[in-house]
Design a protein around this nucleic acid. Structure first.
Lengths: 191, 191
DNA sequence: ATCTATCCTGAACCGTGGTTCACCTTTGTG
DNA sequence: CACAAAGGTGAACCACGGTTCAGGATAGAT
C-alpha cells in the first residue's frame, strides 16, 4: 500500500484550466474540436492534456459528466417546484424543453444524452438525474396527466433524439409533437 | 453547341457497377465507408470512381437519391391503399414505422432524411414523396384522425430524429411516443 | 541551496481517408 | 488495322487529428 504522493500545485491548477477550456470549446464547437485547440484555449501544451487524460474520449467524458450534473440539478429543482405545488406534467415538459435548448448551445449535452444510454459516466450523478426525473413522472401520473406506461427511459429516448441542429421553430414544433406521447390521452401503437 | 460524344460502353457499365456497389456498401456500413472499399466492391479502381463522381459527396448524393425514390414509392403505395379504403392514420403510422426500420438496415436513408431537410436532391423525386405524404395527411385529417396543424414537414422532422441506432424495442417505443403528437387527441404545447 | 520526482513542452509520429495524376488500356471510328 | 480519344489504373499525395516521447522546467522536500 504505497501512499501516493499528493499532486503538485501546478498540476491541480492545470487540470482545472484544461477542464474549463475543454468544456468551453466543446460547448462552442462540439466534441469534434481538436486537442490542439483545447490545449491552446487552456494555455497549455497538448502533452499536458494527455498527462491528465489518457485519451480524448476520457477528456470528453469528464466534460460530459459536468453537463450531466447540471441536468441533474435542473431536474431536482423542477421536482422541488412540483412539491411546492406546480403541475408535474408542466414541469416535465418545461424540463425537456430546457434541456433541448441547452443542447443547442452546449452541444456536448447531446453527446451526454447518448452517453446516458450507452456508457455509465458518473454513477451517482446519473442516479441523481434519473431519480428526479422518475419522481417528476410519478407525480404526473398521480395527477392523472402522464400515461402510466411512461418511464425515465422514455425521457432519455426522446431527449437523445431531439433535433438539436434544427432551427428554433423546428425544435419547438418537435416538443409539441412529442409531448402528447407522454400524456394520458395518448394511446399505444402497434408496429 | 458542340454535340458531346456518347459515352463509351464500358463507362456506362462501370457507372452502374459503381452505383450498385456504393449503394450496397453504404447500406451495410453507412456513408462512412472508404472510397477504397466501394471501389473494391465494384471491382474497379479508385480513380474510376472519381471519373464518374467528382467527389465522395456526389457519389453519396447519388445513392441517397435512389433511397428517396424508394421512399417515394412506398408513400405512393400507401396512398393508393388509402384510396382503396384503408385508414389514412394507420397507413401513415405504418409508413413512418417502415421508413424508420428501413433506416436501420439502410443507413443511407437516415442521411437521406436529413438531406431532405437540407439539400435539394432530385427535385422530382422529392416532390413525389412529399405529395404522397401530404395526401396521406389530408386524408387522415378528413377522417378526423390527424390534427389539422400537421404538415409534411412534421413527418420529415420526426423522421430525421428517429433513433436509428437504438435497439428494436426502443424504436418501437419511440413510434408509440411520437404518433400521438400527430393525432387529433393531442394538444399544442407552449415552450 | 540542492536535488529529484513530478510535471510540462511541442515537434514529430502515425494511421486514416479523400483526392490526384502520369501512365496504360480499351473503345470505336475512318 | 491503325490510331486518337475516352476511359481505367493505383501508387502517391496531402490534410487532418489523435497520440507519443525525449528533453527541459518546476515544485517542494531535505
Amino acid at each position: 500500500m504505497t501512499q501516493a504522493r499528493a499532486p503538485r500545485a501546478d498540476a491541480v491548477r492545470n487540470r482545472r484550466k484544461i477542464l474549463g477550456a475543454a468544456s468551453e470549446q466543446i460547448t462552442a464547437h462540439g466534441p469534434e474540436v481538436g486537442m490542439d485547440e483545447i490545449a491552446a484555449a487552456a494555455g497549455v501544451a497538448v502533452g499536458t492534456l494527455y498527462r491528465h487524460f489518457p485519451t480524448k474520449t476520457d477528456l470528453v467524458a469528464a466534460v460530459v459528466a459536468e453537463f450531466v450534473a447540471r441536468v441533474a440539478d435542473d431536474a431536482q429543482a423542477a421536482l422541488e417546484r412540483v412539491t411546492a405545488g406546480t403541475r408535474a406534467l408542466d414541469e416535465l415538459t418545461a424540463f425537456l424543453g430546457r434541456v433541448v435548448e441547452a443542447s443547442v448551445t452546449d452541444r456536448a449535452v447531446k453527446a451526454a444524452a447518448q452517453a446516458l444510454g450507452a456508457e455509465p459516466g458518473d454513477r451517482d450523478t446519473e442516479e441523481r438525474a434519473s431519480a428526479a426525473v422518475a419522481a417528476l413522472i410519478q407525480a404526473g401520473q398521480a395527477d392523472g396527466d402522464i400515461h402510466p406506461d411512461v418511464t425515465v427511459n422514455d425521457i432519455y429516448l426522446l431527449f437523445s433524439t431531439a433535433p438539436t441542429d434544427q432551427p428554433p421553430a423546428a425544435r419547438a414544433r418537435w416538443l409539441t409533437l412529442v409531448v402528447p406521447g407522454l400524456t394520458t390521452r395518448a394511446r399505444p401503437v402497434d408496429i
